[in-house]
Structure formats: structure tokens, C-alpha cells
Design a protein around this nucleic acid. Structure first.
Lengths: 220, 220
DNA sequence: TAGATTGTTAATCGATTAACAATC
DNA sequence: TAGATTGTTAATCGATTAACAATC
């Protein structure tokens, strides 16, 4: 039982990939899957799959593999997405609006319940059927009222740090950041950043646009 | 001179962060920066900054630091973004449209020049001032005509693999994938995936929603 | 039973950090 | 010169892979 080992960060990321794939297997009415099959589907070695899962307990059955429905439950519990969490969004420009209409969040355990912007012309605007854009002043009240822990940050780079600080002050503890800046936050606040330019630059480097090209092309 | 060492993947990712920060310093009219200052700004140690840059050559000046303008040029050349690259987008749903209107690409060396969708009702629709949505059949011709190497993939998960194969067959060599699937591609094709649900799940895990919470909150 | 597959240990590989002589 | 800061080496730390006894 490995519960007290230190868990590698990359292992947690892969857990999400396994979960997504397991749900796909289940949708195809499969009952069990081996570490090899699961690994092949997400481009990871079988040993890696077993090791990643073993950090959290013994979920498999020698000779059989893993029972899909059971493993989905386990992984959800590990990730904390077995219960729905409320999410808010700050900054409703093009990207913010697109993310708000993304239907995939809810299915994975996240409910978008509020949206904020500091542009007076956007306040009161309808973002989705049930969500109207609120002023930043309402942040504290809304976070408390809906017990919101997660926030998606979609403001321009120049206002990102300030907006993040307002979110944190209001009680947000996890920020998904789309602004191309490194947010400076205190311990106890988790930040995950999605930087589109960074991703394109990685591709560019891999294609050997750089004169140092490793050439090895693989998923990042 | 370290040019023949193997370059760690994470180092390349950090190169993009350095570049973004260097541009910010230059915009603020600074001339030089030390590895410590640059590192502090992007939450990386000074030793790491020096090591990352040293993989590609000797860009710094002992006692002085790095000359910002010079380093920007070097890093752009390393990443292959010193010249503009043409980019296309496949799938113009909400997310695709939002990405198309994102102004940050061009500034970083990427020009969006074409968009595709397999939905007949979207063909001919205007995506931006200069771009109209084309049918997938035009992919080969357009990629060749504009010498496009990069593609942004924004179709639903179910059609992502097939769309990726069409892109690759047409000559695309780097794919920025927004569909929540692991694309299976041949060597020689680079894939970088942005999975929004994965990011939220990482945050959820870090907040200890999981019963195994590492607690340590830091940027991922 | 024979075949399949796990969980775990040990071996390997890769990345980060610390320290410092060389340099401006 | 004295102070600052690099590039690089060696030491540490962390993650992945290989191998296999235990199990169904």
C-alpha cells in the first residue's frame, strides 16, 4: 500500500487522461481493461499506468485487469470530482464567452455559476441561459454564497495579477489562468496556466524551426 | 558550449516564459536583466534560468547579466519564431471562433490564415475580416498554397482523430489540440494538447478535494 | 491447470540545485 | 579594485522503466 509515498505531479495529470479514457471504454460497454490497453490508448507504458494507480491503492485484479466502473469511481474520488464544484469566470471577452459555452465542464464535475467583468458595458449582459455578468464588487458575496472554490481567469495580461488577487481575497483557492503571465500567489492557492502562445512555440521548436531541433515529435 | 547536450523538454517550455517576460522588461525600457531577476518574475530559480539558456549558447555577460534585446532575438531564433509562420484552424465552434479572434498569436510569430469545418452551414461564413470558413476538401490545396505547418484543432472529441489525420495528410506537422483525446500520430508530427478538464482536475486534486491531497499548491 | 495481469522492488534515466572559478 | 553575475561541474533529487513473484 503506497498511500504515504510522495506522488509525482505528472502522475496526477495522467490520472485525468486515464479517467477520460475509462469513461470512453465504459460508454463502449466494456467492463475491464488491462494496464496495457489503457496505456496504449493514452500513449503511456503499461508499467507507468500500474505505478500511477498504485500510488493511491490496489485497484486492479491480477489476471483480470481493472474493473472500469470501479476504477472510474476511485479516480474521481482521488481527483475530488466525485462531487460537483462550483466555478466562476472572471473576464468575459471572446475567450471567456467561449469557455462559458463549453459543455464539457459540467460533465467532469464543474458547474459554472457566475461571471464577472470590470467593463461597465458588460455588466448585466447575459452570458448563458442562467448567468448574467456581475461587477467585480460582487465577487466576495457571490463566492461565499455559492461556496465557489475555483475560478477561470480570462482577462488581458495587464490586469491578470490584480484580478487574481481579488479572486483570492474573495476566497477562490484554485485558478485556471488563461492570461500569458506568471501569477504570483501565496501557498495554499493553486494555479494552473494555459498559455496558447507557449504551446505554439513548443510545436515550433519541435519542428526544428529552431536550429537545435531535437526532432523527436511527441505529445507534450 | 553545450550545443550537443540533450535538451530537457521542460527547459523549452520555460524558454517561452522567459521570452514573454523579457518582452515585458523591454517594454518597460530595461536593458539588462540577471538570471535572478528573470527567474523571480517567472517563478524559477536563478540557476535554472542560467542552465536553460546555456543549453543553447553563451548569451550572458558575467557581472552584467543578459542584454534583453539580444536575448529576445536569440530565444526567438531558438524557438523558430523569428520568422512568421502560417497557421490554420480546423473546427469553428465557439472555441475555434474565440481563438481566431485572439490577438496574441500574431505578435508571437503566428499568422492565422485559414479555417475549416465539415459543417456545410458554416462554409463560407466569415471568421475574421479576411478569413472565410472553407470545406475540409480544400485542406490539401490551402496548406500547400500558404505553406502552412501548424494547425489548431478545435473539433469535438469524437471527430478529433479523423480530423488530425486529414490535417497531417495535407502536410500539417504541428497540431495544437483542444479536443479531450490523446491523438495517435506518427513520429515527425508534433502534438501539444490543451485539455481544459484536465487542468481543472489538477486544481481540484491540489486543493485536496482528493483525500490524498499533497496540499502543496504551485503553478503547474 | 495454464495464461494473464497485477503491485512492487531495484535499476536506470533525466532534471534540478548548489557551489564556485572565471569574468566583467 | 570590489562587487556582481555568468557558465559549468558535481551532487542531489525525482520520475520512469524493467523485471518478476504473487495472484486470479
Amino acid at each position: 500500500m503506497a498511500k504515504f509515498e510522495r506522488i509525482p505531479t505528472p502522475a496526477v495529470r495522467r490520472l485525468s487522461l486515464y479517467l477520460r479514457q475509462l469513461e470512453r471504454f465504459r460508454a463502449a460497454d466494456r467492463r475491464t481493461v488491462s494496464s496495457r490497453e489503457l496505456g496504449d490508448a493514452v500513449a503511456v507504458s503499461d508499467a507507468q499506468v500500474r505505478k500511477d494507480l498504485a500510488y493511491f491503492g490496489q485497484f486492479g485484479h491480477p489476471g483480470i485487469g481493472y474493473r472500469i466502473a470501479e476504477l472510474i469511481d476511485r479516480v474521481r474520488r482521488i481527483l475530488g470530482t466525485d462531487k460537483q464544484s462550483n466555478v466562476l469566470i472572471v473576464g468575459v471577452g471572446n475567450l471567456g464567452r467561449a469557455l462559458a459555452s463549453y459543455r464539457g465542464f459540467a460533465k467532469q464535475g464543474f458547474d459554472l455559476v457566475a461571471a464577472f467583468d470590470d467593463d461597465a458595458r458588460k455588466i448585466g449582459t447575459r452570458l448563458t441561459e442562467s448567468i448574467r455578468v456581475k461587477p467585480m464588487d460582487d465577487l466576495v458575496k457571490t463566492v461565499a454564497g455559492h461556496q465557489i472554490r475555483f475560478g477561470i481567469l480570462c482577462v488581458p495580461a495587464t490586469s491578470a495579477q490584480a484580478a487574481a488577487e481579488q479572486m483570492i481575497a474573495a476566497g477562490i483557492r484554485g485558478i485556471l489562468n488563461f492570461a500569458p503571465v506568471t501569477l504570483q500567489v501565496d501557498a495554499g492557492v493553486a494555479v494552473s496556466s494555459v498559455d496558447l502562445a507557449v504551446h505554439l512555440e513548443q510545436l515550433s521548436f519541435q519542428l526544428g524551426g529552431g536550429r537545435y531541433g531535437a526532432g523527436k515529435a511527441a505529445d507534450v
